[in-house]
Design a protein around this nucleic acid. Structure first.
Length: 263
DNA sequence: ATGGTTGAATATCAA
């Protein structure tokens, strides 16, 4: 079975690229982030025509996450237990959705950006990640043998080599010690980065800013990850980052990350 | 020129 995760930066602007990607790489399950639409605006029919069931949560033009699957889509859950609320009035944002696809619990995640180190969004980001760690740890206790994968846009570059320049990111988000500790805490809860062993750095990224010619200058960040439970990680047979998807007109600023598991 | 691009409530905000 082949799974992938991709921050598409608007599903409506990108749906042709997304369905072409699914076809080209024979993807069974795609975790999608930043759909940037309400559910009634999501192009459900195009996914159905391509043979995929879709679970999507989108509340407005921001965030929005989905899972598209052609190997079943069971026990859909919006958000995760304990996911923090945000806003005034406070409410849950559309940043997490999960389902069981082909026997794997797939969680599609869009971690809050943080904006800047002293912004309230940064405290929200750290709280959100802490709650995610608690959820992930609880799942391993409740179902230690369940294949589960937390995949999406984590908005964290966990290692120095995951950014094109540590000097550039000094005092910026994505590389700060608290963010990296929050990411590491999920690993310490028992989850494993199943992609990095197949895509070693340095210079291997999943995101390049639209501005400043970052992509042709190879100035990116590795911030999209698939973290597998022990039962999932044991079945991973390969992984790659589809850098080609960042090329050309109409590309998302993120590339898809693909993971293969044995059936 | 203190930006540079893209996408979404077209007017700014978010990334």
């Amino acid at each position: 079975m082949r799974l992938a995760t991709w921050n598409v930066n608007s599903i409506r602007a990108r749906v042709d690229r997304v369905t072409a990607f699914l076809d080209r790489h024979d993807v069974d399950v795609l975790a999608i982030q930043e759909t940037k639409c309400r559910d009634d605006q999501f192009p459900h029919l195009l996914f159905e025509a391509a043979g995929y069931q879709v679970a999507h949560v989108g509340l407005n033009q921001w965030n929005g996450v989905a899972i598209a699957s052609r190997v079943g889509l069971e026990d859909v859950q919006v958000g995760f237990d304990g996911m923090p609320a945000w806003g005034d009035p406070a409410g849950a944002e559309a940043r997490a959705i999960s389902a069981v696809c082909g026997g794997v619990r797939v969680v599609s995640l869009y971690v809050p950006n943080g904006r800047s180190l002293d912004d309230p969004h940064m405290a929200y980001k750290l709280d959100w990640l802490g709650r995610l760690r608690t959820y992930a740890a609880a799942r391993l206790v409740a179902a230690p043998d369940e294949p589960a994968v937390l995949m999406g846009d984590w908005n964290i570059a966990p290692e120095d080599e995951d950014v094109w320049s540590m000097a550039f990111y000094e005092n910026k988000t994505h590389v700060s010690a608290p963010e990296r500790a929050a990411f590491r805490a999920v690993l310490e809860a028992g989850f494993t980065d199943v992609v990095r062993p197949f895509t070693p750095g340095p210079g291997v990224y999943t995101y390049w800013d639209y501005t400043q010619l970052r992509f042709p200058k190879r100035q990116g960040m590795r911030i999209d990850f698939a973290l597998g439970s022990p039962a999932f990680a044991a079945r991973v047979s390969g992984a790659f980052i589809d850098r080609e998807e960042r090329k050309g007109k109409g590309a998302s600023d993120h590339a898809p990350v693909v993971v293969d598991v044995t059936d």
